[in-house]
Write a protein that binds this DNA or RNA. Structure first.
Lengths: 342, 342
DNA sequence: CTGTTAGCGCATTCAT
DNA sequence: ATGAATGCGCTAACAG
């Protein structure tokens, strides 16, 4: 194990002080060109590497940001994180990732751990809503650590957010289904305590009302975001006396389950029933019967979240700043909802 | 902004020394029950939080590990990272993620940055092979920082690896195609300087030779791992005078491209041509025509990689230890290669 | 059982 | 332009 080289070692080598070495390395203008060069050369020769930990302790900046997501192995979150990493990399920031698995205790634990690790900011998508977390959020803000929510947000003073317009996405998707001639559109929803799901529900509802169709709350059903639940609920819908002629799902996975179940019932898509999902997961375009979905541009969301963080860091004022960025969703129309000539 | 509370603050409050506070907080047995309790109480009251940065500088352990992958938004890598995070979380380790985007300069840069940040270990999947990186790897080892490769490895002394048996996976997939009656199996390969792709190629080749079939190098073609390249190359294969009756692809994405192209040519799968991929990406099972693929159990790979790291950390010896874990692949047979009654 | 001292590696204020 | 001294927050060796 090669011994660690510090600025003291290179100071000793040159018979100068560590302070001078530090200044030279940091391009302090008060240092003469010669010593600066000398220091640079011997630093390189001795293979010196700055210990960021010491710097962090001294400066109070760790150059680490914490990113908290419900889970990593979903294309959406992975893409957001990719965006964050790519945007932050040029600034020298590193990304520490935490998963909550939708467990609010884990969320609180992660926040505390990140705070103790002295991260310079926390970017997160909340997993749940409860008053306990609000205390955690307050703790972050009290420490003057920038907190930014992306996608799944809570409404808290002083917290910036980056989201897509979920209402709009759902509204457009539903309007599209209506334009295809669908008159009885069911909605596979999700936990509406979470804002994005509530907004999607509201957008769906508004589109129906705006079109003069009958709104039937009984065909709005809460589902867990997976294929099995999509199938199960769709089965119950198809068995109704008055089954729907379209399904708008707040998740691509439940939409897929719906499609499988519809086919199992011998019905045709999109002729008999149209289906649209939400998130534009990669598989939706790979399917034989490609699935209509709402794209959330996760990469851009990640980059934007990082940008907001950088802005926040650069503000000198102690004033609480908050910025609400709302990205536009893009409806991607595919076979699952596109009727030929109607 | 609430002022930061240190052990000095709580020491002053109690008219004792910071050292005593530190000891009490760390449950040092030499501290009396009363003071320990007193310290604990006032710490809680004053809302004290340990500064991990100071601890890290002092102890030389940052409790951060760096994870370097080519990209984040692939289900495989995201799942591996999930496994790493979940396994490491109970030990108090945090995961810093870096992407190389298959750029070796970025890879080297990331390694240096992680080293400067004093990570306790580096877990990575290499993006390329070149002598320049070897210097980086040497730098890691010289600092006595555990280095563990997963999936895409290089063969370096003192470095542990966690991989799946790619040869075996490819061998079984090819054998399966042969068992379906296929006699002329093409292989969509990938950069064979990377060991996993070379091994898949070799497994494929061995299966053909072991079965007494003719091995034809001209239908082994290197592709980039995406749908477009899969289509393009498959097109050229189908236009041969002597087209293949099966395609074994080292990537699910090229396998999907192959399927699309085969259908576009009016051929039937699996009746006319069988197709198998590699990686068991989620979409392979979602497809209408589900794709046969080789599962790499990424979650387990991640957990295992983390376990090997923990083991390595706990070894007291300075001796270089290396462990080579090889996980078993699982062939998942689906419609794209399963002929009915032949 | 507790206080004193010192050091992890760095940057910075105050000298000169 | 450079040196000396100090502190970031913590733990550990050495005293007592």
């Amino acid at each position: 194990m090669s011994k660690k080289i510090t600025i003291y070692d290179i100071a000793k080598e040159l018979n100068i002080t560590a302070a001078t070495v530090s200044r030279a390395l940091n391009n302090n203008p008060k240092i003469s060109k010669v010593t600066r060069q000398l220091v640079a050369d011997t630093a390189a020769k001795m293979n010196y590497k700055q210990n960021k930990l010491a710097l962090a302790l001294k400066s109070g900046k760790s150059y680490n940001v914490g990113v908290i997501v419900p889970r990593l192995d979903s294309n959406f979150f992975a893409s957001v994180i990719r965006g964050i990493e790519e945007e932050l990399h040029p600034y020298g920031y590193h990304v520490i990732i935490c998963q909550t698995r939708d467990d609010k205790n884990l969320e609180i634990e992660n926040i505390d751990a990140l705070l103790n690790a002295q991260v310079d900011g926390i970017l997160m998508s909340i997993s749940n809503v409860s008053t306990e977390q609000n205390e955690s959020f307050e703790r972050i803000l009290k420490k003057n650590v920038p907190l930014i929510f992306f996608d799944r947000k809570a409404n808290i003073d002083g917290v910036s957010t980056v989201t897509i317009n979920d209402f709009q996405g759902a509204y457009e998707a539903t309007k599209h289904l209506i334009a295809q001639g669908c008159k009885r559109i069911a909605h596979l929803s999700n936990n509406r305590l979470i804002e994005i799901f509530r907004d999607r529900y509201l957008g769906y509802k508004q589109a129906i009302l705006d079109s003069g169709l009958e709104f039937d709350e009984s065909i709005v059903i809460e589902a867990i975001s997976n294929v099995e639940d999509g199938r199960k609920i769709t089965k119950s819908l198809l068995e109704l006396d008055n089954p729907p002629d379209a399904i708008f799902s707040s998740s691509d996975f439940t939409a897929l389950g719906a499609i499988q179940e519809i086919k199992a019932h011998g019905l045709k898509i999109p002729e008999d029933i149209c289906v649209a999902g939400f998130a534009n997961e990669p598989f939706t375009k790979f399917m034989e019967l490609a699935i209509t979905s709402v794209d959330q541009s996760p990469l851009e969301m990640g980059k934007m979240t990082a940008k907001v963080f950088i802005e926040q860091i650069n503000k000198k004022e102690i004033v609480k700043i908050e910025k609400k960025v709302v990205l536009n969703p893009k409806l991607i129309i595919r076979e699952s909802s596109l009727k030929k000539q109607h």
